[in-house]
């Protein structure tokens, strides 16, 4: 691992420190900054999509829009009792008036409470893990107790959101892959430019018995240092952007199930990005040098 960053004494100064690829650390910083953002977005969306899917599969809502308040209350109580008896149901609870108001307030303001708007009663139920598809059984029971009630699987109305999250996740991961390709391309161009600049030095080294591997190691170490510097700067800036951004997203409080904008493991992954960047840059530099030197004697 430490060999990755070590600068062997025998390589000291063979290539000059100031090179035509002097902009490379800053290009890598920009690439890694964008990669970190895409990576964070991908991980957050993946977490949110997974959480949403696992919740949705097991959840259903019973909606009772009976205008007669007494009848409605009676049916609700009966439904709560009967649903609770079902072995396929893990939990059942009535959505309280306060929760209903909280859900409606962002859309209707406090007029919903004061204007006597008829609001349906809602029952949330969660199926057991082994009975994710027990919706038909619940529907049959609900119809006998309250014919006006509707049973809706949460997955039905949140499916488009879940699908969108999954699409965005793959888009973000695609961006990460594209950024990796772009970073590799920048390294290839920098190494080729450096090979041209130092062609005479490399020829001299070859004539003194340097192997292609030794020449490649010089470039690898130089690129590794550039990538480590650029990658560290890029990821630090990205984290400085992500922290307030994720705080703002959390504060939106949209109330969607499975809403988890920041996964705890996102940050260790982001911190490791410069290491991945260094590994990628070294690998690309080595292959570029070896393939270019292969044409020489």
């Amino acid at each position: 691992m430490f060999e990755l960053f070590r600068f062997a004494a025998r390589d000291k100064g063979v290539l000059p420190e100031h090179r035509s690829s002097g902009m490379l650390p800053w290009l890598i910083a920009i690439m890694l900054f964008l990669t970190a953002l895409a990576c964070w977005a991908g991980m957050s969306l993946a977490g949110a999509a997974a959480s949403l899917s696992s919740d949705l599969d097991r959840r259903a809502t019973v909606q009772l829009a009976e205008p007669n308040a007494r009848l409605r209350e009676g049916q609700i109580r009966a439904l709560l009792v009967e649903l609770d008896k079902l072995s396929i149901v893990e939990s059942v609870r009535r959505v309280s008036d306060e929760e209903l108001s909280a859900m409606l307030d962002p859309w209707l303001g406090d007029t919903a409470r004061n204007a006597d708007i008829p609001v349906p009663a809602l029952i949330d139920l969660v199926f057991t893990q082994s009975n994710r598809n027990g919706l038909d059984q619940v529907k049959a029971l609900v119809t006998t107790v309250a014919p006006n009630a509707q049973v809706t699987a949460d997955a039905e109305w949140l499916a488009p959101a879940s699908s969108l999250l999954r699409t965005l996740k793959w888009l973000a991961l695609g961006l990460v892959a594209l950024m990796a390709v772009a970073t590799g391309s920048v390294v290839v161009m920098a190494v080729r430019s450096s090979l041209n600049t130092h062609g005479e030095t490399i020829d001299i080294m070859h004539l003194m018995g340097a192997s292609d591997r030794q020449v490649a190691q010089l470039f690898e170490r130089q690129i590794a240092r550039d990538a480590l510097l650029g990658g560290t700067v890029g990821v630090i800036v990205a984290i400085l952007v992500i922290l307030p951004l994720s705080a703002r997203i959390s504060s939106l409080g949209g109330g969607l199930p499975g809403e988890t904008p920041v996964q705890w493991w996102s940050f260790p992954m982001l911190i490791l990005l410069p290491v991945f960047g260094v590994g990628l840059a070294r690998l690309v530099a080595r292959r570029t040098v070896m393939s270019n030197l292969g044409d020489k004697l």
Binding site: I204, L207, M208
Partner: peptide
């Protein structure tokens, strides 16, 4: 060992480092 007609010294290395170059390439310690 080669003495080139046009010397072919590595321009950014000192005289010491130019002379040391073959030894460094051969893996001799500093």
């Amino acid at each position: 060992g080669v003495v080139f007609q046009d010397f072919r010294l590595v321009p950014h290395l000192s005289a010491f480092d130019n002379v040391a170059l073959p030894l460094r390439l051969a893996g001799v310690s500093e």
